[in-house]
Amino acid sequence: MNYTKFKEIIKLEMKKRNLWKDTFEFKVNRDVRGQSKSIFIVDGGNKIYIAKYFNYTEDIDIKIPKEDWETINSLNDYINYLDENYDVQIEEISEGLALKKRCFTRYVIASNETTNVFPVVYFNVEEINFDFSIGGILLEEAINGVTLETYINNPKFSKEERIIECINFFKIISKKMYEYFSKDFVHRDLSPDNIMILENQGIKDYIIIDPGVVKIMSRNSTKGRVKFCKDLYSSPEQYLGYGSTVNFTSDIYILGIVIYEFITNINLIKKFYRPDILPHNEINSMLDRTIEDWFYDSIDESPLIDRLYMIIKKMLQCKKDDRFQTKESFVSVVETLNLEGDD
């Protein structure tokens, strides 16, 4: 990515909105796990903002000559250009690009209309011609904290601590998910490295960062399907590439993988990964067998734990309809997990 140009754009947009201070500096975000490219805006070493670029056109395997980019200022221009110059399935590409843009705009809306679920978004531009692509940019608050990934791998946790922390996390995150589901948004990338932990006077809160985007894939592409690391936290429908059929139950599936890992330190998709099969099918068939055994190897049985396992099982169903029918039923079932009532 052309960071020099990106910095120029961000600085200009921030100045327009009186957000820029002369003491600010840019710091490139080398952590490239997220699906967007980003850069921090720091003040005296403190990360204040993060600017992100969501490239809508990156999956389209066509290199448009640099000089022609001068005439392309919007997704519509881009689609017209491809149609007039290349032998591509433009109607399908157009549907795919519209979905990508929708992921971006729904994220901005969900951020603006919820509290403490996502970082605050200060501004966004829906369509911009940048770095020989079309995408959306946004500026949001930088979240300083540890990721859930670092946290759940903490070996110091006792069994008891682990279950307390896990259930607290599960309750808080499911309420937040309910909030953004209600804004018609699906995150698509709820991996532990995208959940930040904030601790204030011993009370933990969780902020979700870096939403995933739809992948537009070609049947004829020789490139890898989806990056393997992201497959480790994916629903079956995302793993197979059916991005447009993703709904709130897809995030519920991914959370099921995360919760199981929180308790057992086992990532089930990694455990059942083989290049030629859908690991989710294997997971489905093992839920009453070894997966249950590993679970109870990690944690002592109790009515609460049994109930937790039942919920995880429901979250990890291959068929979307078998997971939870409504976002309300999901959040209310999680709410019934009561640490005090357990004996």
Binding site: Q89, E92, G96, Y242
Partner: peptide, 13 residues
């Protein structure tokens, strides 16, 4: 048709 928008085949003349 909406089910298949994520993948695209070869466009034929």
């Amino acid at each position: 048709r909406f089910e298949s928008v994520d993948t695209f085949g070869i466009r034929k003349k």
